[in-house]
Design a binder for these strands. Structure first.
Lengths: 164, 164
DNA sequence: AACAATTAAGTAAGTACTCACGTTTAATAA
DNA sequence: TTATTAAACGTGAGTACTTACTTAATTGTT
């Protein structure tokens, strides 16, 4: 649905069900028939987010070559298309607005990274993994917020730091 | 004011002026006398945020020793007290909810970092600065969101990476 | 008395949500 | 093929309540 766009632009609480209905070109009642709640509508979007997260990570988690795990993690942002920005922006926005903890979704990725850094004999694999994840999250945030940050220079720069 | 706490907990749009008034123990009308708008109330909080940002950075920007600039940047989070978490959480929350660009506030810090990395003969001072700022922002975000992330291990780990 | 600080009681517009009603779809019975 | 039927789809007007904001009256201070 195109309701997503509204949520992404204005946020959850600022987007009324009547606005969503108008934007989607349907009656307001239909939303409640279909999703029961405003919360249900949002939950549907959140669920979609979780599955997109998983398919984004799938490629990395299955990788066995440790250097590839790291390389794919750093370049993961290249795998999301500009047309999906609204969607991802909403995911980040909701994490703040509704205080949803996103740690759980990242856990498989973190484990893969810890494993990879261990194999490469890094001194503190867990910290290395945390650091890299903070970085990915940070760049994604900056991009989606429309920051000035030049991700296209930063990502190659990072790859170099990890000898990739 | 203690209105801040409400904004920080629930967000801007989810916090009504009547709630704020009740929490602050004053009449609702007084808020509008004093701040004119709900937006004015928030702007006051935002302004306070900007000044706290500045005083937090002041120490770093004035530093001449390049290594100290980097060290102080990494350990800047140690300078904010737990009692101020609500305040900072709100600043981060509003950046997402109201799409406020925070780049400008960071610019003096970034310039200090670029300068420091240049003096230390790093290859890409600007990228180094960006990277470090993304880290700081990311760690702060994680802490304020109540993530599991162990910042007390990550910060010393980072210091080590920069030979500090 | 004069003047600012504060309030209680409004207001119109919006909010999430319900419900009685019509319409389309699709499977079965003739 | 048609006719019947039942569910799913969809609507629009209504609900009780909340929203940001106003204003006339009341309080406190000098």
């Amino acid at each position: 649905m195109a309701a997503l766009q509204l949520f992404a632009q204005e946020g959850y609480h600022a987007t009324s069900t009547s606005k969503v209905a108008r934007a989607a070109g349907v009656s307001e009642g239909l939303i409640f028939r279909h999703f029961k709640n405003k919360e249900g509508l949002m939950q549907a979007i959140l669920d979609e987010g979780e599955s997109r997260f998983k398919s984004l990570f799938a490629d990395i988690v299955l990788e066995t070559e440790p250097k590839e795990v790291i390389r794919k993690t750093i370049t993961i942002l290249h795998k999301v298309d500009v047309s999906e920005y609204d969607f991802w922006k909403l995911q980040f926005k909701l994490k703040w607005e509704l205080e949803i903890n996103g740690d759980k979704k990242m856990e498989p990725l973190k484990m893969a990274l810890v494993h990879a850094f261990s194999k490469l004999a890094y001194e503190s694999p867990e910290q290395e993994a945390d650091l890299l994840l903070v970085f990915i999250d940070g760049i994604a945030s900056a991009m989606l917020k429309g920051s000035q940050l030049d991700a296209d220079k930063l990502i190659p720069f990072l790859l170099k730091k990890y000898d990739l």
